[in-house]
C-alpha cells in the first residue's frame, strides 16, 4: 500500500512537470508575441494613457496607473484593464492544473511516509517548488505578475528535474533528530520564505533589465522590446520590495525557530554550524537589501542587485550547502 502511494506520488509529480513544461511554452509564446506586437500597438497605447489617467483621476506620483504603463494591453481601454492574451490565459490555467497535480503528489508522499513530506532533499524540493507555485498563484490574484510565468515555471521545472533525477529516495522514517514539531514549522516556513524570495528575485531581475532599458534608451544591449510591455522599473522595484519583505519576515522566523529547535536538539541555540551560517548570511544580505532601499544612492538598481545576490545565496544554501557541506544539518537524506 505504502509503495503504491509512493508511486502515485512520483507519477503525479512527473505529470505536474509535464504540465508545467506546457505552461512554460505558453508563457514563452506570450512573451514572444508581446515583442512582435508591440510595434503595432505603440500607436494605440498613447491615447490609452490619457484615458487611463483620466479615469483613475489621481496623480500617481509614485505608482503610475497600471493601465498607462502596460502599453499594449492598455490599448483595450477603460473597462477591463489589460486585455488578456490567450496564450497567457492558457499558461495560467496550465500552471493551476500542474499545481493541483503536484499538490496531490506531495500530499500522497506525506501520507505514504506518515509524516510531513519535507524531511530530505527530494521532499524539500517537491514541497518547496509547490510553495513557489502556490505563492505565485496567490500573488497573481492580487497583482498581474503573469509576465513572470516563464521564469517561475522554468525555475520550478529545473528544480523538480534536478531533484527527481538526483535526489529521489524512497520513503524512509524520520531519524530521531528530525522527529520534532519544529521540523514541521521551521522547514515549512523556510520554504515559504524561499518561495517569496524567488518571486522577489525574479522581479528584481526584470527591474534591472527594465532600468537598463530606461536609462540607456537606444542602446541595443539587453534591450528586449518586450520590456516595453512590462511595468516600469519603479513599479517593479516596489513590487519586488513588497514581496521580498514578506520573504524576509518568514526568514527571520525561520532563523528564530531554527535556534529554538537547535536548543532542544543539540543543547545550544546557535553554534555557527554551516547551515546556520548560511541562514544568517542570507538574513543579513536581505537586511542589507532593505537598508539599501532606504539609503540615498542605493535605491533602484543597486538594491535590486542585493536582492539577486540574496536569492543566489538562498539557492546556494539549498542546493550546495545541503548536499556538499558537512555539518550537523546532514539531513539531505542522500
Amino acid at each position: 500500500m505504502m509503495e503504491t502511494l509512493e508511486q502515485y506520488s512520483i507519477l503525479l509529480v512527473y505529470s505536474a512537470m509535464a504540465i508545467y513544461a506546457l505552461a512554460f511554452i505558453s508563457f514563452a509564446l506570450d512573451l514572444a508575441k508581446r515583442s512582435s506586437q508591440i510595434k503595432a500597438d505603440e500607436v494605440a497605447a498613447a491615447p490609452a494613457e490619457l484615458v487611463g489617467a483620466f479615469v483613475s483621476g489621481r496623480s500617481g506620483v509614485t505608482d503610475a496607473p497600471v493601465v498607462a504603463s502596460t502599453g499594449a494591453a492598455g490599448a483595450s481601454g477603460v473597462d477591463a484593464g489589460p486585455k488578456r492574451s490567450v496564450t497567457l490565459r492558457i499558461g495560467v490555467a496550465l500552471t493551476v492544473i500542474g499545481f493541483l497535480l503536484q499538490l496531490v503528489g506531495v500530499v500522497l508522499r506525506g501520507i505514504a511516509a506518515e509524516r510531513v513530506p519535507w524531511a530530505n532533499m527530494y521532499e524539500f524540493s517537491i514541497t518547496g517548488t509547490l510553495l513557489i507555485m502556490g505563492v505565485f498563484l496567490v500573488v497573481l490574484m492580487r497583482q498581474d505578475l503573469r509576465f513572470l510565468g516563464t521564469f517561475i515555471t522554468g525555475l520550478v521545472l529545473i528544480l523538480l528535474g534536478v531533484s527527481t533525477v538526483n535526489y529521489y529516495v524512497a520513503v524512509v522514517p524520520l531519524p530521531p533528530a528530525l522527529d520534532s514539531a519544529w521540523l514541521v514549522i521551521h522547514v515549512f516556513v523556510a520554504s515559504l520564505g524561499t518561495a517569496f524570495f524567488a518571486l522577489g528575485g525574479a522581479l528584481s531581475g526584470i527591474q534591472l533589465l527594465q532600468n537598463r532599458r530606461e536609462t540607456a534608451k537606444g542602446s541595443k544591449f539587453l534591450n528586449f522590446r518586450l520590456l516595453d510591455t512590462l511595468p516600469d522599473s519603479v513599479r517593479l522595484e516596489n513590487l519586488a520590495y513588497r514581496i521580498n519583505i514578506v520573504g524576509f519576515v518568514f526568514w527571520t522566523f525561520t532563523l528564530i525557530a531554527g535556534a529554538v529547535w537547535a536548543e532542544r536538539a543539540w543543547g545550544r541555540y546557535w553554534g555557527w554550524d554551516t547551515k546556520e551560517v548560511w541562514t544568517f548570511i542570507i538574513w543579513v544580505i536581505y537586511a542589507g537589501y532593505i537598508h539599501a532601499r532606504a539609503t540615498k544612492g542605493w535605491r533602484g538598481s543597486r538594491s535590486a542587485w542585493l536582492a539577486l545576490i540574496g536569492f543566489a545565496a538562498v539557492l546556494f544554501n539549498f542546493g550546495v550547502v545541503n548536499v556538499f557541506f558537512k555539518g550537523l544539518h546532514a539531513y539531505s537524506g542522500l
Binding site: V284, I285, T295, K296, G297, W298
Partner: peptide, 12 residues
C-alpha cells in the same frame, strides 16, 4: 545609513 549598509554587507 551608508555605513550601516556597508557594515551589513561586510558582515555577510
Amino acid at each position: 545609513m551608508r555605513t550601516a549598509l556597508f557594515l551589513l554587507l561586510l558582515l555577510a
